[in-house]
Nucleic acid binder design. Structure first.
Length: 540
DNA sequence: GCTCCATGCAA
DNA sequence: TATTGCATGGAGC
C-alpha cells in the first residue's frame, strides 16, 4: 500500500449503522479518494439506504477478474488473489462446511483485515492485466459506472400487485389440480406427473407409446416429444396442458410471491459477472424470463405495476442483434434492408428468395426470422431444419439462398472464427474479450460448439455493450435533470422506468435519444417506446 | 443437504 | 445438432 492510502473492510452490520455510515460519507463522496473494493454492489446498496448515494469507485476486483476472463467459474476474492497475485488468503477459521475442532473461532476483525489487504494487493496486478488486454476503458467507462446504476435499480425494486399475483397463483393451482386428475384418469393410474422417470414408464412402457429422442437417463418426455404423440393417446394433451400450467404456477405464481418484499416490490439481483458474453443476468428472482408468448403467461406481466401517480415506460431496442450483424459484417444487402425501413424479416425474405415483399407469406417470413436468430447463434443446417421442421437438404438450400443474398454475413462469420482460433479469444468492438480455448479441442463436437460460441460472442457481446452504455446514460440524465422518474428493470435490450405522469413525454424523448445514440452503427439503432399501467399494458 | 438432471421460461 | 441465462421438482448420494 502506498502512502496516504487506507484499507478498510466494512462488515455488513456496520453499514446498517447510521453513525458509522455518516463517518464514511466524507471518505467516500465523489470528492473523496478513489475507492477500490471487492464485489462492491451490496456495499453501495447499504450506503444508499443510509442516504449516501455517491461513491468515487475506481476498481471492483470482482469486475476486473470478470473482464480478464468472463468464463471463469468464480471471482471469489481468495481465488483472485491466488490467480492474479500468487498469494493465499490466510485461513482464519475452520474450512467451510467443516466442524471447527480446534475450538478457536475465526476472528472477524483479523479476517476483515486480510480481505482488505487482498484488495490492495490485487489492485496493481489487476489494473496492469487490464491495461495489457486493452480493458481499461471498458472497465472505467462501462462496468464501474454501471455498478451504481444497478445498485439503485436493485435497491428500488419493481412494484407488484400482490393481490393480483395471489389471484393468478390460486387460479393456476386449481387448474393444476384439475389437469393432474385428468392425466391420472387418462393414464389409468395415479403417479407423480412431475417425475420424468415415472412419466416415462407410464407413457412408453404401460401405454406403449412410441419413444422419440433420448436423454442421458432414458427417453425424453419434453414438449416437442409430447407434441408428436398428441394424437396417439388422450393423456398426452392433458399432460401438455398440465406442464404449461404447472410451470406458471410454480416458477412464477409461487416464485414471484415469495420474492415480494417491503412496499410490495420485488428486488432482484442483477449479476454483472456471470454471462460469458457481457450480458447481465438476474436472480432471486430471475426477472429476465417473465412469460410473454402465451396469454396465460403474459398475465404475470399485468402484476408488474408502478406506484400511484406513475406510469410504466418500456423502451426496447428493435432487432438489435440483427442490426449488430449488419454492422459487423458491413453487408450492403442487410444494411439496405434495414434502411428501407420495412419489416426486416419480410425484407430479408424478399431478398433471399428474390421476390417482391408483397409476395412474402407469413410462412416465408417466419423462415427468414428463424435464419436471423440462427445466425446470431452460429447455426448450421441441421439446427435450422429442426426448427423449421424440414429436411436438412431444404435447410441447406435456405442457408445458401440467404448467404447468396447477404454474402458479407458468411464472410464475417468465417473471419470471426478464424481470428478467434488464431488468437484464442474473441473481442467485441468495445474490447470485451472472451477466451475460447475449446476452438483447438481435438473433439469435433466440442470444437464445433466453440465455433458457434465464437460467432455469437461478438454479436451478443456488442449488443450488451451498447445496452450498458444506454443504461448508464439514462441513469445519468435522470439524475442530472433532477427527475422523479427512475429505472426499475432491464431485460437485455429493454429498460423499464417508473415515470410520474407529468414527466412521460420528456422522459420518453430522453430515453429514446439516449438509447438511439448509445453507439453509432452503420444502421440506425431503432427504439420502441410504450407506456401503460402495467408491464403488459405498456404498448405503443 | 448438496448436486445433477430434465424441463421450460426469456432475450 | 442454435447463443446466453435461472428456477423448478425429482432423484440420488
Amino acid at each position: 500500500m502506498s502512502d496516504g492510502e487506507q484499507a478498510w473492510w466494512i462488515p455488513a452490520d456496520l453499514l446498517a449503522d447510521p453513525a458509522a455510515t455518516a463517518a464514511l460519507a466524507g471518505l467516500l463522496g465523489t470528492d473523496g479518494p478513489g475507492v477500490a473494493a471487492h464485489d462492491v454492489k451490496p456495499m453501495l446498496r447499504a450506503l444508499q439506504r443510509q442516504g449516501i448515494g455517491e461513491v468515487h469507485l475506481v476498481l471492483d476486483t470482482a469486475l476486473a477478474g470478470y473482464l480478464l476472463d468472463p468464463a471463469d467459474a468464480t471471482y471469489d476474492l481468495g481465488v483472485l488473489l491466488e490467480r492474479h497475485a500468487r498469494r493465499m488468503l490466510p485461513v482464519t477459521g475452520a474450512p467451510d462446511g467443516q466442524l471447527d475442532l480446534s475450538g478457536e473461532a475465526a476472528d472477524p476483525s483479523v479476517e476483515a483485515g486480510h480481505r482488505a489487504a487482498a484488495v490492495c494487493i490485487l489492485r496493481d496486478p489487476l489494473v496492469s492485466a487490464m491495461e495489457a488486454q486493452g480493458l481499461l476503458s471498458l472497465n472505467a467507462d462501462i462496468e464501474v459506472p454501471l455498478v451504481a446504476v444497478l445498485a439503485r435499480m436493485e435497491e428500488l425494486g419493481i412494484g407488484v400487485d400482490v393481490a393480483e399475483l395471489t389471484r393468478l397463483r390460486d387460479e393456476l393451482t386449481a387448474n393444476c389440480e384439475r389437469l393432474r386428475s385428468l392425466v391420472h384418469e387418462a393414464a389409468g393410474e395415479e403417479f407423480n406427473v412431475n417425475s420424468t422417470k415415472q412419466l416415462r414408464e407410464v407413457l412408453f412402457e404401460k401405454l406403449g407409446l412410441t419413444p422419440g429422442k433420448k436423454t442421458k437417463t432414458g427417453f425424453s418426455t419434453d414438449a416437442s416429444t409430447l407434441e408428436r404423440l398428441r394424437d396417439d393417446h388422450p393423456v398426452v394433451a392433458h399432460l401438455l396442458a398440465y406442464r404449461e400450467v404447472e410451470k406458471l404456477r410454480s416458477t412464477y405464481g409461487e416464485g414471484l410471491l415469495a420474492e415480494a418484499g417491503p412496499g410490495d416490490r420485488i428486488r432482484a439481483t442483477f449479476n454483472q459477472t456471470v454471462a460469458r458474453t457481457g450480458r447481465l443476468s438476474s436472480d432471486a428472482p430471475n426477472l429476465h424470463n417473465i412469460p410473454v408468448r402465451t396469454e396465460a403467461g403474459r398475465a404475470f406481466r399485468r402484476a408488474f405495476v408502478p406506484i400511484d401517480g406513475y406510469t410504466l415506460l418500456v423502451a426496447d431496442y428493435n432487432q438489435i442483434e440483427l442490426r449488430v450483424i449488419a454492422h459487423l459484417a458491413d453487408d450492403p444487402g442487410l444494411i439496405a434492408a434495414f434502411e428501407a425501413g420495412d419489416d426486416i424479416h419480410t425484407a430479408v425474405a424478399a431478398r433471399t428468395w428474390g421476390i417482391d415483399p408483397s409476395e412474402v407469406t407469413s410462412e416465408v417470413r417466419n423462415r427468414a426470422k428463424m435464419v436471423a436468430y440462427g445466425l446470431a447463434y452460429g447455426m448450421e443446417a441441421y439446427g435450422l431444419s429442426q426448427r423449421l421442421g424440414s429436411s436438412v437438404d431444404e435447410a441447406n438450400e435456405i442457408l445458401e439462398s440467404y448467404f447468396a443474398a447477404f454474402p458479407s454475413v458468411r464472410d464475417y462469420m468465417e473471419r470471426t472464427v478464424d481470428e478467434a482460433r488464431q488468437k484464442g479469444y474473441t473481442e467485441t468492438l468495445f474490447g470485451r474479450r472472451r477466451r475460447i480455448p475449446e476452438l483447438s479441442s481435438p473433439n469435433f463436437n466440442v470444437r464445433q460448439a466453440a465455433e458457434r460460441q465464437a460467432m455469437n460472442a461478438g454479436i451478443q457481446g456488442l449488443a450488451a455493450d451498447v445496452f450498458k452504455v444506454a443504461l448508464i446514460r439514462i441513469d445519468d440524465r435522470l439524475r442530472a435533470d433532477g427527475s422523479a422518474s427512475r429505472l426499475v428493470l432491464q431485460v437485455h435490450d429493454e429498460v423499464i422506468l417508473e415515470v410520474p405522469t407529468n414527466e412521460v413525454a420528456d422522459v420518453e424523448a430522453m430515453v429514446r435519444s439516449e438509447m438511439t445514440g448509445a453507439y453509432d452503427l452503420r444502421v440506425e439503432l431503432a427504439v420502441e417506446v410504450a407506456t401503460g399501467a402495467t408491464w403488459a399494458h405498456a404498448k405503443g
